[in-house]
Design a binder for these strands. Structure first.
Lengths: 338, 338
DNA sequence: TAAGATCCCAAAAACGTTTCTGGTTGCGAA
DNA sequence: TTCGCAACCAGAAACGTTTTTGGGATCTTA
């Protein structure tokens, strides 16, 4: 007994160490711990016991190398639009991470800092094999990201649709949102209803506008293009839009806003013009940001269970990763909140 | 020529394939591509050329297995407090991701959904060897997470301090914030200055209060404990606090609020009591959430460059990962915004 | 009792890198 | 010429799993 062959103490235990301790082979340990069927119940217990007492943690890298997968899904956030639309982001991430963690998957976050780099970021992520699936939002009617991924058969889920909708997505029922907005304002007697829309490059903007159009149609009201302004995603976006609107002589009595920030900054714009928001011009928002609830006048908006949305995305990712190829698509309702 | 030995087409090329194409050994390819010195310039060029034309992407899993590291840093977000403090989160993540990406590191996000699970989440992350470093916020004076990690020598950076400060951290200069808040209100003639603080379990709350106390001292004003209410991180937090304050008979003429949401909901509370925020009771916030800028009355608050903060964190992580052991600590200023 | 089946498990071959060890060249100095 | 040294590179041994292959028991069935 020289002691030279003693196993090193307090070092991360191998799968070999577990096998030794349990008195079985390495392969049996692997099968036992991974829940394969062809291992005796008692043997499995012995292995689990050994792993437990040794504090064995399988090496992720090794497992992933062998299985040739990564065990992570990547969420790409497009920076330019998130700065002012934060709440959207975290709630979603929360639900998503919960589902993924339960499935043993990691969540990675990458940022696309410029609009036209989004495709590069995606390409890099999949070509370097850093993830098994992708999630991203702000889809466009013609979305090269979707095209590229579909072409390659790489798993992904989007928040929002494109004009083909042959892939996995989750989306708010934007048409319904637009429709309800219009109906509500019509019911209040408004005839000249304006729209401060989110950027037109995004699909959801068009869907929302489609809903509004439908609502106006129902009421026999015309759709006046002069009452529509596209708003960029900036801090004072609504204020500038309102100014532009009234400068060109349009006099809406109500405004349907693409999101809460547009609505809230539009209020500033109205005040600057000497108008009282909520009285002279009715406003309706969309998003239910936490702070919006404290605005005066209070803002009517549409809420959404982002956590639930994230969970559904997580489920879709999982299903897709388990080989389910038929596209899953989910529209979630966005109840109005006064 | 049977064709049987033809290399398979359109399959992910090996490092072996590159070696073959470049007419050099596998190890040379590795050293060439990883920028080692002992490889002839011309050879290196040939290797890079071959890798390029083959579209070679090294397998992350294999490299990480061999190097026995993960190439990712994990950001833990504690859910309970983020729901209403979103902006804090994304800006930080943005800067951090930028630095990490530049260093070839991945950013992973995990959520701690319950307060007392934070340590479990951290333990799991490091024990399962899923990351090379950790980042988290909401530090407490006695923070078991910090203790645990320090004990183990695992690299990490926090947003915020504990009562020992022997580790890497980035923080806003909270004392300064409190001090300036108090000075400002004192200068406006206020004598009875209340505080609606963030939860006392966090270090930054105490630092901020310390600053306020210092400001009051300077002016020879007493610190009245009856004017202080601790606010949980909820939607109506400030409103409830104000109600409690006035119910117990305290009549502050100014309120220093721990964050913008507290301040904004406190306005609601004041209105409910028949008081006019900004006139009857002055308010001062902290955080500069994007929407707060549109409040009426407008809110004085403290801003912070979160992106820069994230970048500094990223730098610290990198330095630590490269073996720099001396703790780096950074206080960033938080200018007041009216 | 022999012949399959069935149930477990061991051995070994991957997975694709990095790094350690050592060997071959070419060159200047002894 | 010989030796030593530097520069460059090849070979092979890891890294820690999973999965394939195959084989020895044990159990059924005829």
């Amino acid at each position: 007994m020289t002691g030279a062959d003693l196993p090193p103490l307090s070092i991360r235990p191998d799968i070999r160490a577990v096998a030794l301790a349990a008195g079985v082979s390495v392969s049996t340990v692997s099968r036992a711990l991974n829940g394969y069927a062809d291992v005796n119940a008692e043997t499995r217990k012995r292995v689990e016991q050994a792993a437990e007492t040794l504090g064995y943690r399988p090496s992720h890298a090794a497992a992933m190398l062998r299985r040739s997968q990564t065990g992570t899904v990547t969420f790409m956030v497009s920076k330019p639009w998130t700065k002012y639309v934060d709440p959207y982001f975290l709630g979603l991430l929360d639900g998503l991470e919960m589902m993924l963690a339960a499935a043993g998957l990691d969540l990675q976050v990458v940022m696309a800092r410029e609009f036209d780099r989004e495709i590069d970021v995606i390409r890099s992520a999949v070509e370097r094999n850093r993830c098994d699936a992708l999630v991203f939002a702000r889809t466009r009617p013609e979305d090269e990201r979707i095209d590229w991924l579909e072409e390659r058969g790489f798993p992904f889920v989007t928040v929002g649709r494109n004009n083909r909708n042959s892939h996995n997505f989750v989306d708010r029922d934007q048409v319904q949102v637009g429709l309800e907005s219009a109906r509500r304002l019509v019911a209040l007697g408004h005839q000249k209803i304006g729209q401060l829309t989110t950027p037109l490059r995004y699909t959801y903007t068009h869907l929302s506008m489609q809903g509004v159009r439908q609502g106006l149609d129902e009421a026999g009201l015309p759709l006046d293009p002069a009452l529509i302004v596209e708003c960029p995603l900036s801090q004072k976006t609504g204020e500038e839009a309102v100014t532009e609107l009234f400068l060109r002589g349009a006099r809406p009595t109500a405004l349907i806003c693409g999101n809460d920030l547009i609505a809230i900054s539009a209020m500033d714009g109205l005040r600057r013009l000497g108008l009282t928001p909520g009285k002279d011009v009715a406003l309706i928002g969309c998003d239910d940001t936490p702070i919006a609830a404290h605005m005066r006048p209070s803002l009517t908006t549409f809420t959404m269970d982002l956590g639930a949305m994230g969970i559904r995305i997580g489920r879709m990712v999982q299903a897709r990763l388990q080989g389910q190829l038929a596209p899953q698509q989910d529209l979630i309702e966005a109840p109005i909140v006064l």
